[in-house]
């Protein structure tokens, strides 16, 4: 996020007026780990740094390292929860938050961080994931069953149009639950979810997708045999890379492994770690799958009763 001059000034004033330099350094160390304010400002160790200069330097540093949103989240936490047993009143914090919201972010109270407002903007990293950092994520894989046979039978052109519709159905459902498309290759793709309740949101999206495809096959799919997909959800750590190389991390590899070995058409397959996070009314609709490795996997499907 590019931090405009007015927002920097507001944040500098807020910091100046809310705490002394020593506390500011503690706060800065929460962001950076090690932080030497004297070195950053160029003041000799023996010379005290004025409040305003210290605040200005810290704000400049968090803005330049793209940590401004995290820093404002931390200030909010200092006001609500406090630090070392003391709560801090941060003047102008409401104005700062309002300005951030106006630039297309919303505050996610569950994760305690700002994320982009998808009504205004939708980017691959929610506007906040940082290059090279590890996040716990849930991934939803979408794979068309029997793609090669479908293309052979109906032609590339026809199938491309149908896959476009599939992509639209899936993306709408995923984005409604703040998931992101991380990769789409012709007949399927990978969608990512993070922040709070990522497993639940991924599963809810997948269930809705299966329901929508059930209706699509019933009323408007031009293929006589219908369009059938396999959906898979697996979660785990993922190091974010803006160039897309994170699609090769172990968590994603494992997802496609589950899909190829145990995925069934018109079904959602989830790994064991996902099931306990679901509401009982939904988890009770999943059935266990026998696996050769003894790993616990569960499947949900839509069928005519």
């Amino acid at each position: 996020m590019r931090v405009k001059g007015r927002l920097r000034t507001l944040a500098t004033r807020a910091l100046t007026e809310s705490m002394e330099v020593k506390t500011m350094v503690h706060v800065a160390r929460r962001m950076f780990g090690n932080y030497d304010l004297h070195e950053r400002t160029g003041f000799p160790q023996s010379v005290p740094i004025p409040n305003r200069t210290a605040a200005s330097q810290i704000i400049a540093d968090v803005a330049e390292t793209d940590l401004f949103l995290e820093f404002v989240s931390l200030l909010m936490s200092l006001e609500r929860v406090g630090m070392a047993g003391r709560k801090y009143k941060i003047p102008r914090l409401n104005t700062i938050v309002t300005e951030i919201l106006d630039t297309g972010y919303r505050y996610d109270s569950g994760s305690g961080s700002f994320v982009e407002d998808r009504a205004i903007r939708t980017t691959r990293n929610w506007g906040v994931l940082r290059e090279g950092e590890n996040y716990v994520m849930a991934f939803l894989g979408v794979d068309v069953a029997g793609n090669s046979e479908l293309v052979r039978r109906h032609g590339q052109g026809s199938m491309q149009r149908i896959y476009q519709t599939l992509r639209q159905i899936v993306t709408e459902s995923v984005q409604r639950r703040n998931g992101r498309l991380w990769g789409w290759e012709g007949d399927g793709g990978l969608f990512a979810f993070t922040f709070e309740e990522e497993n639940q949101r991924a599963v809810h999206s997948a269930v809705e997708i299966l329901n929508e495809l059930f209706l699509y096959n019933l009323i408007s799919c031009p293929l006589p045999e219908g369009l059938h997909v396999r959906l898979t959800i697996h979660n785990g750590p993922c190091e974010y890379r803006s160039d897309g190389t994170e699609l090769k991390v172990d968590t994603v590899k494992r997802l496609w492994d589950i899909d190829s070995k145990y995925g069934q058409q018109d079904s959602l397959t989830i790994s064991a770690a996902i099931l306990p996070s679901l509401d009982h009314s939904l988890s009770s609709r999943f059935e266990g799958i026998r696996t050769s490795s003894g790993e616990n996997l569960y499947a949900y499907s839509v069928r005519f009763a």
């Binding site: 639940q200 809810h204 269930v207 809705e208 329901n211 929508e212 059930f214 209706l215 009323i219 509401d279 009314s281 939904l282 609709r285 839509v302």
Partner: peptide, 16 residues
């Protein structure tokens, strides 16, 4: 169709 959709998504609607 919207009515059928409401039936299909009843569990999700309840949760969400």
């Amino acid at each position: 169709i919207p009515a059928v959709r409401l039936v299909l998504n009843r569990v999700l609607i309840n949760i969400e």
